[in-house]
Design a protein around this nucleic acid. Structure first.
Lengths: 327, 327
DNA sequence: CGAAATCTCGAAAACGTTTGCATGCTTTTC
DNA sequence: GAAAAGCATGCAAACGTTTTCGAGATTTCG
């Protein structure tokens, strides 16, 4: 429309020094009046980058993961990056499929928390070999040499258990989703060490392996709460299991903290409004997301950046004691 | 590597009828062994479509919106569509900026719930004029002639209010975020009609306008709960305000349902575990998301589809009565 | 056996940008 | 006054696909 070559227009829009101010003005004015927006695919194709970050989480309806995404976005948004969000629904096959979408440049980087089913890691190796920067958080994969963010899972598990013991618990059950995922393992270790350090008669049956099926979890919990050897303390390694326990206690008309005490890893804002208020170990979710994003923005927006360091960064959780644990 | 032209390779991979089986096999085998994945940008550039849907919500840490996104994904995932998720943080300027990213083809369609600040709608008009299919849900924009999904806001507001009145409430406050957004208006209308139909002495001061600032909301709620003309019933039009009310009641040691009764629009799964269990009107969030997605998939994947119809589709909510309202 | 039909593949254009290089023009410099 | 330098712009290639068109090879058919 202005009788200019595409190259000139491009340079004018990008404010190149080799275009006269007069031409720049003409071009930019017309662009504005036409609501011109450059085509992102042409750009991505040419530049070999997408200004997009993929976030992969195991489930969406979860306060922790929502907060992490908020944290990520708080940083990426300043840089004009877009967020592609995927949920694996804790399913390994879905995770593999999602990953396969992302190794071809659709995203410039990946931020993820692996599913509880993830045992093999070929697909993750593949990402790494394809030079797509990847950062893990919470449920990390130690084998891939990249940066990972976790909280002090061992210590938190230890402290939470010790707290229950101090409150008089002699038989403390540990509820987990899967023994395979990183956080499960570490929290479990902390729990076991605390139990043993206190000289309690630990038994393997104290560790209760739950599943993705909420109805089954509820039945399982009710079952052991009915039994003869029922616990007087429970440490839930994920929020979901704490909720099922509340449900079970309610249906069975058991009283917390009288009949048993509980503390849980959880990022619920309303933990204090439950009946009874739930003692929690809450993770710095927003901060974790923000730190992941900062690292990625540094790597992606600055020239000549080294690959992401192979290290584990720990950001401590906060224990908030309420009535459910007898406080 | 196979001494074939790009066109042949392309056709072989896409299983075109004009390629011999032998060649197809050779190509597909090599592709598999190289983990070949076609470049999405080249594809999008060529096809003028991105297989991506943008979802714009006012906030991420919200059960309702998370569930809607799950619903959307449950459908789009089968079609191999990707989800770009944005949060406006209830901010109009952010909303405008996000929209401006999307009118150039980055997304094939938009599913959105407008921010509580959204009064002007030029940016939404712009989307529509650019022929980007857009569907609204929950907080809709009636002026844009497209398909919108809502719940029976008026009726739900009416029923909830009637329920409180049946439980003996004489002075019922209505808590809302903004009078501008669609759902606020409709729920408010239902509430007012119910109050008037019951012959209660309605006063404008019963409608309490809250803000995005949680601390201010808490102070506001505490203030009217302290006052002489404090309500004996509260209808919260959004979950967030119900939570602030619980917080206020807790701090002031007020007892629900004795001192006042409450019911709230909310999609919290754990409403029943609060103290006291919260009566809710819960929306069919997952279903709303799924319906939006179904419509879009139809429009995007089938040839020769008409534009999205200009109509409002209502999916009813469910009222679940618990102790907070005196049940 | 010649012509038509069928099968298999390649050449080239197109999608909308960005950028290295070339070009023509004006200004500066010795 | 001629060469060098600076300025403003255009040309063309490249990014990786898909698709239209056409060409050569083989088969079929009368």
């Amino acid at each position: 429309m202005l009788n200019l070559a595409p190259s000139t227009v491009s340079r004018a829009l990008n404010d190149s020094y080799e275009i006269s101010q007069a031409t720049k003005d003409r071009v930019q004015e017309l662009a504005k009046s036409l609501h011109y927006q450059p085509n992102p695919f042409a750009r991505s194709l040419r530049a070999q980058k997408s200004k997009t970050i993929a976030v992969i989480i195991p489930e969406r309806i979860n306060n922790y993961f929502s907060q992490v995404i908020e944290g990520i976005e708080s940083i990426t948004q300043e840089f004009g990056y877009h967020l592609l969000v995927y949920s694996t629904h804790e399913n390994l096959d879905t995770e593999k499929k999602i990953i396969s979408y992302l190794v071809n440049g659709r995203a410039d980087a990946i931020v993820m928390s692996v599913s509880s089913q993830t045992r093999e890691i070929d697909h993750l190796e593949n990402v790494f070999q394809n030079k797509v920067p990847i950062i893990f958080f919470d449920r990390i994969c130690r084998e891939i040499p990249t940066t990972k963010f976790i909280t002090n899972d061992y210590q938190s598990g230890y402290n939470a258990t010790m707290h229950l013991i101090e409150k008089g618990c002699k038989k403390i059950f540990f509820l987990l989703l899967s023994r395979d995922i990183s956080i499960g393992k570490e929290r479990l270790r902390g729990y076991i060490d605390a139990v043993k350090d206190s000289g309690l008669a630990f038994s393997e049956s104290w560790v209760v392996q739950c599943s993705q099926d909420e109805a089954r979890n509820l039945a399982l919990i009710k079952h052991f709460l009915y039994g003869m050897d029922r616990p007087d303390g429970i440490l839930a390694s994920v929020e979901k299991l704490a909720i099922s326990t509340y449900q079970a206690a309610k249906e069975m008309r058991l009283n917390m903290p009288k009949d048993f005490k509980m503390i849980s890893f959880s990022n619920m804002k309303i933990a204090g409004l439950l009946n009874p208020p739930l003692s929690t170990i809450s993770q710095p979710a927003f901060q974790v997301g923000a730190e992941c994003a900062k690292l990625l923005m540094q790597k992606l927006t600055k020239p000549k950046q080294p690959p992401l360091e192979d290290r584990v960064i720990e950001i401590p959780s906060k224990m908030e004691l309420r009535e459910s644990s007898g406080d």
